[in-house]
Simulated assay, not measured.
Amino acid sequence: MARADLSITPRLRQQLAEWLQEDLGRGDLTTSALRGREGEAHWLAKADGVFCGGVLLEPLVRELVGSSEPRLDWQLLVGDGTPVEAGQRLLELRGPAEHLVALERTALNLAMRLSGIATATAALVAQLKGTGVALADTRKTTPGLRTLEKYAVRCGGGVNHRMGLDDAAMLKENHLAWAGGVTAAIAAVRADAPWPARVIVEAESAEEAQAAVVAGADAVLLDEFSPDALKTLVPSLRAQAVLRPARTSVVLEASGVNPAELPLYAATGVDLISSSAPMTRSSWLDLSMRFTPAGS
């Protein structure tokens, strides 16, 4: 089980409220058939995978029900980041039938999306087991869902790259072209950014990578290099970093990789491999909510 924490911030609570309201609209037209009835329900995994999304139940229920009586109670049977099997119960709920129905779609949609990302991440992380190389995500996330999708990556055993543009300065092809090269771009950022800020250079050639190390980049993202090319390049970059005046180390990251070849990239000596695949290529994990009348 991959351990991960998610802070339920006021902003996230507001988003959850908006997503519930998106489904409820002016009010569920089926509640007249359910009013006054109690029900029990459970979530069921319909495929093997890694579960993620249980942490959202508390804020979703609080937003939907508030302090009204009777209460809507639930019990998580598995924690986020836990591998699950098809047919396994994940969650049990009990309360007013109208609340169970109103909660179902929003909660399940989020859990299926996040569980799909956690499942895809875990499959890639498994390829790196024993290598000491971490798998990182990217900023290719669904607008509005970045915090949750990156949480799902952590639940799958991955690590988070930048949450946003204000986390670190990553100088890419356009930055380097417009600034007049690697050295000039790094100098400009160093002059304006707070001193703890990291400067990362995305290099598309060995020459750019060497220039980034010499100019003092904290990390070099080696984009779309083959494993064979990295086997030669990585040791030379390590040797160059030792010669820097401050003798500071440099983080070397492989990106633009084929997810099926992660062990080959890990064997090159890089520290980190980043991939958007858990976000962009994953499918939702199939979950369902099954109902029974209370006491049946």
Rank of each mutant, 00 (worst) to 15 (best):
Q21E: 04
G216R: 04
V65P: 02
A246Q: 12
S226C: 04
T280H: 13
S249Q: 11
E18L: 12
C52K: 01
L114R: 13
V55H: 09
K46E: 15
R26A: 11
T119L: 04
R113I: 08
Q14R: 15
G216W: 07
V65H: 04
A126N: 10
L114C: 14
C155G: 04
V182M: 09
L12V: 05
Y265T: 01
L233C: 04
V61C: 08
E40F: 04
A120V: 02
L148W: 03
T30H: 11
E22I: 06
S32R: 15
A277H: 12
M1F: 10
T248H: 10
L60K: 02
S296T: 13
T292C: 11
A185G: 00
L243H: 12
S282C: 13
R290A: 06
V50D: 06
G295N: 12
I200K: 02
D271L: 08
R290G: 00
N160V: 05
A197W: 14
A215M: 06
P10I: 08
L100K: 09
H99K: 07
E104Y: 03
R89P: 06
G49M: 03
V214Y: 02
K129T: 12
T138P: 06
T232S: 11
A45W: 01
R190T: 07
R13I: 03
A239S: 14
L76A: 12
P263I: 10
P196D: 12
T138C: 06
T9A: 09
D28Y: 15
H99C: 06
T121N: 01
A33F: 15
L287A: 08
G81E: 04
A136R: 08
R238D: 04
R71Y: 02
H42P: 01
P293A: 08
L243P: 00
D223F: 07
P143Q: 15
A239L: 13
L24P: 11
A118L: 09
D137Y: 12
Q127N: 01
L72R: 01
E63M: 03
A123M: 03
M170Y: 11
D167I: 12
I8E: 01
V84M: 04
E92D: 13
R35Q: 15
T82E: 09
S7V: 15
L16D: 00
R89A: 09
L44F: 02
T31G: 00
E149T: 09
I186R: 08
